[in-house]
Simulated scan of single mutants.
Amino acid sequence: MMSARRIPLLLIGAFAALYLIWGSTYLAIRIGVESWPPLMLAGVRFLIAGVLFYAWLRWRGVPSPSAREWRAAGLIGTLLLVGGNGGVSVAEHLGVASGVAALAVATMPLFALLFGLFWGQRARLLEWAGILLGLLGIVLLNLGSNLQASPLGAALLVFAAASWAFGSVWSRYLPLPAGPMASAAQMLVAGAVLLVLSPLTGERLTQMPSLAGWAVLAYLVVFGSIVAFSAYLYLLKTVRPAAATSYAYVNPVVAVLLGIFFAGERIVAAEWLAMLVIVGGVVLIGLPQWRRGQ
């Protein structure tokens, strides 16, 4: 009985972490890139989080990953955190509003379903309906002023969504380290890759970050990386990819509201309508999952 009760509570907690914490990270990144170069911010964030998480796990007696597991973790970490998070950070640095960035990343579940077909996964009718509804929302989103003002930012967000989706699906078939060690290994590798890419792309830290920049870094390390990313990897191993990636539909609500109230971002009518349509898609995507009782 205890076990049966713990599993639903753990699932609820994991989904809440993704929906609420990751929704807030879009605003945090926007504040952060005002003080940090975008790839450098992401690299420092994940390297610190990875070192802390790895050290804590080793102290608790968790074995270090094998060479095979390190390679798998490096591949997935690069797709999720370098391509995914790095792309979002650069797009926001280019001026895309944090709420609109979250809305654009909502294309990710569409890519996840398409990539899943390569591994023989079959999408249910309701999942396809939810994805199509989300795609309609993306079309509406592109009618707004934010993405039209930054075509490169829009392209980076689509790339970030595709990279994250491919890594999410592929992770189910690679020999990743067990449990939270997978998070630590992926963040360590991705942090190192991002910090190599930062100077190669011409990034330089011309002055020390502001107090807000340091505070944002701390928030992203602890909550955005260690807490939420671990919850995401847990869900990838527990539920279908379409459900695990459904946070991309809920994050925009949190991100848009935070951007309006705390950053003065302006969302036009087409973007509000896009948000309503996109959020509606998560209901359709989640129904098959919850009907199975998982």
Rank of each mutant, 00 (worst) to 15 (best):
L103V: 12
A104E: 07
A104H: 05
V105N: 12
A106N: 07
T107H: 00
T107K: 02
P109R: 05
P109E: 02
L110N: 00
L110D: 00
A112G: 13
L113V: 15
L114N: 03
L117A: 14
L117M: 15
W119T: 06
W119F: 15
G120D: 02
Q121F: 11
R122E: 14
R124H: 14
L125C: 02
L126F: 13
L126Q: 11
E127A: 11
W128T: 12
W128D: 03
A129I: 13
G130F: 13
I131H: 00
I131A: 15
G134I: 07
L135R: 02
G137L: 03
I138G: 01
I138N: 03
L140W: 11
L141P: 04
G144R: 03
N146S: 15
N146L: 02
S150H: 15
S150E: 13
P151M: 05
L152N: 05
A155T: 12
L156E: 01
L157S: 07
L157P: 03
V158K: 00
F159S: 12
A160K: 07
A161M: 09
A162K: 06
S163H: 01
A165R: 08
F166G: 00
S168Q: 04
V169A: 08
W170M: 14
W170D: 02
R172T: 03
L174C: 08
L174I: 10
L174G: 06
P177K: 06
A178G: 14
G179T: 11
G179L: 11
P180G: 05
A185F: 08
M187L: 14
L188D: 08
V189P: 03
G191K: 06
A192Y: 00
A192D: 01
L194R: 10
L194S: 12
L194E: 09
L195F: 04
L195T: 06
S198W: 04
S198V: 01
L200T: 07
G202S: 12
G202Y: 10
E203G: 07
R204E: 13
R204G: 02
L205W: 00
L205A: 03
T206K: 11
Q207K: 13
P209L: 08
S210D: 11
A212S: 14
A215M: 12
A215V: 05
L217R: 02
L220C: 03
